[in-house]
């Protein structure tokens, strides 16, 4: 429609490419090229002086030769040292478990909101979104106060006489799960809600009419239809959770780090940028499939709006 028109309006060729060009070049310069640089550095040798890595291709004046020096060792380190493999596996496990709990908690909530009266629906949605607008960091920090040895939960349980000794809640896997589920719950609920809200309720009536009991109707009709929402919600939680940095540093174990923490430590602590680059590239490869899945979902959603 408009698009074919635009391609035909000849005298608009100039502004048109300008309008396309501005966001394009920005993203190219500040989003795409940085990844190329990370890739490049992940193959470089470490260098004690600025910028911390040796060039891949160098013109050596004395020998009058172009020296290309690739360093695959950064990647071999990741395989050789069990620390990295374990950290990767642990990060994926934490993200997967958290995503699962997010779905388990988020689905009934999204369902309840989608089936509530339209007037209360907006209020409930507002309540779900409101924490999202408040500082993520502070909300994670709030759990420190709740989970500490002398924190609110332990104090309450002790006062009620349910426990004699304070429980170790903070700095554990449990605390990280809580932190991730808590922070990412709105990201699970919102895509689920927008999917469930679109469902035609007469489908359930038809299922009931055809003899399906409510549980069966849910399993056979609602659940399959909400798959796109489930996939989108899970990806929105899982992908960032794998690389999560703030939550494990505030709530997580000290004997088992997540990959984000290791990455940051390599970068700022050991100052080994080539290895940090390799870790980042591997992390990106691990997440490539989920990211592509998410992009496909996003495209379909937009097409559905446009019909």
């Amino acid at each position: 429609m408009y698009r074919s028109l635009l391609s035909t309006v000849k005298n608009w060729t100039q502004p048109r490419s300008l309008v396309i060009g501005v966001p394009y070049l920005w993203l190219l310069a500040f989003f795409a090229i940085p990844f190329v640089i990370v890739l490049k550095i992940s193959f470089s040798w470490m260098q004690p002086i600025q910028p911390g890595y040796a060039p891949l291709i160098e013109w050596v004046e004395e020998t009058r030769r172009l020296v290309v020096s690739f360093n695959f060792d950064n990647y071999q380190v990741l395989l050789r040292e069990s620390l990295y493999v374990e950290t990767f596996l642990y990060s994926v496990k934490v993200a997967a478990v958290s995503t699962f709990w997010c779905l388990l908690i988020g689905y009934p909530m999204a369902y309840a909101i989608a089936r509530s009266k339209p007037s209360t629906r907006n209020l409930l949605l507002m309540l779900i979104i409101l924490p999202f607008w408040t500082s993520f960091l502070l909300r994670v920090y709030a759990w420190v106060g709740l989970l500490k040895t002398n924190g609110v939960i332990n104090n309450t349980l002790l006062a009620l006489g349910l426990i004699d000794q304070p429980l170790t809640l903070l700095y554990s896997d449990f605390a990280v799960y809580i932190g991730i589920v808590y922070s990412y719950l709105p990201f699970m609920i919102l895509p689920l809600y927008s999917n469930l809200e679109k469902h035609d309720l007469t489908l359930l009536e038809a299922a009931a009419d055809l003899g399906a009991r409510p549980v069966k109707a849910f399993m056979k009709v609602t659940l399959p239809l909400s798959m796109p929402g489930i996939v989108a919600g899970c990806l929105l939680v899982f992908i960032p959770a794998v690389g999560e940095f703030v939550i494990p540093s505030l709530l997580g174990r000290t004997d088992q780090l997540m990959i984000g923490t290791v990455l940051s430590a390599q970068f700022f602590g050991a100052r080994n940028w080539p290895v940090a680059g390799a870790v980042a590239i591997v992390l990106l490869l691990v997440l490539l499939l989920p990211i592509l899945l998410f992009q496909r979902h996003q495209r379909r959603e937009l097409e559905a709006v446009r019909r």
Binding site: P23, L236, G243, G260, L263, A280, Q298
Partner: peptide, 16 residues
């Protein structure tokens, strides 16, 4: 390029 930053772990974006 416009949808990738939505899910990209911040730490990778930061390093890049």
């Amino acid at each position: 390029m416009t949808t990738a930053p939505l899910v990209m772990p911040e730490i990778i974006t930061g390093i890049a």
